[in-house]
Structure formats: structure tokens, C-alpha cells
Design a protein around this nucleic acid. Structure first.
Lengths: 229, 229
DNA sequence: TGACAATTTAACCCATCGGTTCAATCTAGC
DNA sequence: GCTAGATTGAACCGATGGGTTAAATTGTCA
């Protein structure tokens, strides 16, 4: 009668095994890509065997796709923590950008999986039907801010929510994705805490500037002084 | 006496063979990454054989590194075409960003190689001693604009040239690198010509905003009207 | 012309790695 | 307990693919 829920002292526990595999596989795929990852290396990190990987996920590519979907869901989930209710549109936009910037920093594995997906021309992501809803929601957030901003007379009328989302993504993503080559070429100062704070501030100012109807509000919204923040 | 220069009707021509290999290898590595690329696939695209690849470039990794260096040099070379002499600092900055944005779009293979390098934590790029000089020059361009802008009283005093370069790179790079996943998730409208023009305009406005001392100049510099440009 | 070096071809080698076979073991329900 | 189905282990397979061997051809220079 207590079959499903209570996994009291089971020996077999498929869900846990699958989750374990996904966990290790995510780290490995993020580290070395699809073709760069060895299934045996994943197996070595799990509590189970290579055999089980093929048992639960048919082949390497399916495992990779499962990892991608799993990771995407988890990250999008984390975005729900942001609550912009009741904020003034310009403040909300600022909060959204700051949150996204930080959120991307907290999820480097996700960033790497997306980088890898881009190398593969998003071939696998295109198969993932579950994404549509999550993406709608992400754009919805930006859209509401835009609308509110326009209605309040704060934002320009011609702002495209998708383009705005693009801008937010660009800085937040690049910051994590290109850290290695950028710091190799130009030093790592921008990636310690003060540097990151500076970049975030600059990004906020830049993006608000491309949205505000009256740019003179900028200085009030974005303190230029590096000592602040 | 006419040994080296005249390659009149030679049958052997090592330089051409090497260049041929590099050309094909670049395309292949950019397409499928280091571990994803098969040497045989490269060989198939050349006028020569797999054996010759190992003859001229010791192994796969060395070939990859040669490709990276070669591509980097070529792209940086292309940047020399930009001449900002005599331009007002704000106009020069705008021109630099627009040039970089377009230049990245023209060199998708380079972008992909850098993406791949980031997946590898820039391990191979770190070995390339030839880069330092080219990077200095790239930062030098931004630095001169900053200095001139400050001296002219146009720019804020606290601008970091490296951070400014980061901003320019972020939008220009992301635009090419993440096209696949972004358009999968949010549609491809931003990537046709009008969309690209819009993004470029927004980027210009945003970056100028984070640099100008007096943001009220923004509207004069960056026509908000999408019909223009 | 003939010795020597650089270049090229064809055939081969063998470690790796994704994926499988098959039999053993576990769990639930009867 | 017994059977059916789910889960697991050990050993195996075969193609792929990076890299090599060795011998042939081409060019240089004395």
C-alpha cells in the first residue's frame, strides 16, 4: 500500500539513480562538451555503472538532451524567485538586469551548456518542446515592465521587449561565457568583486539609457560614483 | 639561382599545402570543435592527405592551435582598416562600436573558435605569445578615445578602457555567438537586417550613455527614430 | 649524375569508447 | 514461495579515428 512515495529502506531506487546520473552528466557535459565527454567518465562519478546510463537514457545524445532540459528547467525555476510586483518600471528593469547578471554568474554550468548548444547550432534545444512556455514567461516579464514604463511615460514607445531581453542577456551571458578568453587577453581585473560591480553598474546605466524617454533621469537612477553600490 | 621566390611550375609547394590545410581545418574546427573534428574530415576537404597534416602539424592539438593563431592574426589584421584619426571622441567611439559589431558579424568562424576556446578555459590561447601585442593595440584604440574624450570634457573621468572594451565586445560577440539559441527561444526577427540595425543602434546608445559626462547629448548623437540609420 | 634531403603515398596499427549480450538479482503481487 | 518484470553487473564487441611505418617520388646542390 505504501509503494511509491515511501522509499524507506529500499535497495532499488531508480529515480535516485537517474538523478545521480543527471547530476554527474551535467557537470561533465558542461566541462567538456558533447563529443568531448566520455560516458565512462560520467559513470566513474556516479554511484552506479555505465550500463545503467544506457539503461535509463538510451544513448549519449539522449543523455545530453536530458541534461540540457533538466538544467534549463532548474535555472528557469530559479528565476521565479525574482518578484518585481509594485516596483516602479525603471526600478523594476534595473532589478531585473541585476538579478539576471547575478543569476548567470551563479549558474556557470548552464551558461556552458548554452555555449555548447550554440556550437551545435541549437540543434538539440530545438527538440525541446518544454521550453516554449518558459521562454514566453521570460519575455512576459520584460514585456510587462515595458508596458508599465510606457504607460507611466517613463520609457520610449518604440522599445522592443525582445530586443531589451537581448541586451540584458548579452552582458549577463558574455560576462560568464567569455571570462576565460577575455581575462587571458586583457587581464582578470574585471572579474574580481569590484570589477564585477563596475561592469554591472555600467550595464545598468547603458540599458536604462536605451530605454528611458528622458535620459536626464539617468544620473538619479544610476549613481555614477564607483564608491556607491 | 631563382630557388625560393619563383614557384613557377613546381610540383611541390609546401607553403600552399600548409595554407590549404589551415583553411580547411579552420572551417572544420569552427564547425565542430576540437574533439568534435575528425582529421580525416579535414583531409577530405584538402587537396592533400591525412598523412600530410601530421607531417606539417605534429598532431591534432597543434593543428588546432595553429588554426587559432592564424585566424586570430587575420581578424586582428582586419581591424587595422578602421581609421579613427581626427574624429571627435564621441563619434570615434560610435564608429568603433559599429565597426566591431559589423566585423564580428563578418567573422563567424573566428567567433566560434573563441567560443570553443572558452569551453576549453582558454587553455590553448594562453600559449599564444603573439597575442599580447595585438591585444595591447586593441585596448590602445579604446584608451586613446577615452583620453581624448576626457580631455575634451565629453566623457566621464572614471571610465576604464578595459571595461569599455568589454562592453563593446559583449554585445558584438553575443550577437553572433548566441544567435542559434536566442533565435530558437525568442524568434529570429532580431537577426534579419532591420533587427540587426535596431540592436546596433540600441548598443550604441547604451554604451555612449555609460561614457558621456552629459547624457543630454545622447539624443543628438543617437537618433532614436528607427526610420533613420 | 649521383648523393642527400624534403615531400608525398599507401597501407597499417591499436587504444579508445559508444554501445551490447546475457545472465544474475531484486521487488511486487498473488 | 513463485513468477513476471524491473534493475544491475561483468564481460564483451566492433568501428572509429589519431597517429605511425616504410618506401617512393621529387627537388637541390656538388
Amino acid at each position: 500500500m505504501e509503494t511509491r512515495e515511501k522509499s524507506r529502506k529500499w535497495k532499488q531506487n531508480p529515480e535516485a539513480v537517474k538523478a545521480d546520473i543527471l547530476r554527474v552528466a551535467r557537470a561533465e557535459f558542461a566541462r567538456t562538451g558533447l563529443s568531448g565527454t566520455r560516458i565512462e567518465d560520467i559513470a566513474a562519478g556516479t554511484k552506479t555503472s555505465k550500463r545503467m546510463i544506457f539503461y535509463y537514457f538510451q544513448d549519449k545524445q539522449s543523455l545530453y538532451e536530458a541534461v540540457l532540459e533538466d538544467c534549463y528547467a532548474e535555472v528557469r525555476e530559479g528565476e521565479l524567485e525574482l518578484d518585481l510586483e509594485g516596483l516602479r518600471p525603471d526600478v523594476a528593469l534595473r532589478a531585473l538586469l541585476e538579478f539576471t547578471f547575478d543569476h548567470h554568474r551563479r549558474n556557470p554550468e548552464f551558461i556552458r551548456l548554452v555555449m555548447i548548444e550554440n556550437i551545435h547550432d541549437a540543434r538539440h534545444m530545438q527538440k525541446m518542446h518544454t521550453l516554449a512556455a518558459k521562454n514566453e514567461r521570460a519575455i512576459g516579464v520584460v514585456e510587462r515592465i515595458c508596458r508599465a514604463g510606457c504607460e507611466a511615460g517613463l520609457f520610449r514607445e518604440d522599445i522592443s521587449p525582445v530586443a531589451l531581453h537581448w541586451q540584458i542577456s548579452a552582458v549577463s551571458f558574455f560576462n560568464v561565457a567569455n571570462r576565460a578568453t577575455f581575462s587571458t587577453n586583457f587581464g582578470s581585473e574585471l572579474f574580481d568583486e569590484p570589477g564585477q560591480a563596475l561592469l554591472r553598474r555600467m550595464a545598468v546605466r547603458g540599458i536604462l539609457a536605451s530605454v528611458l524617454k528622458n535620459v536626464s533621469q539617468l544620473d538619479a537612477l544610476c549613481p555614477a560614483d564607483p564608491a556607491l553600490d
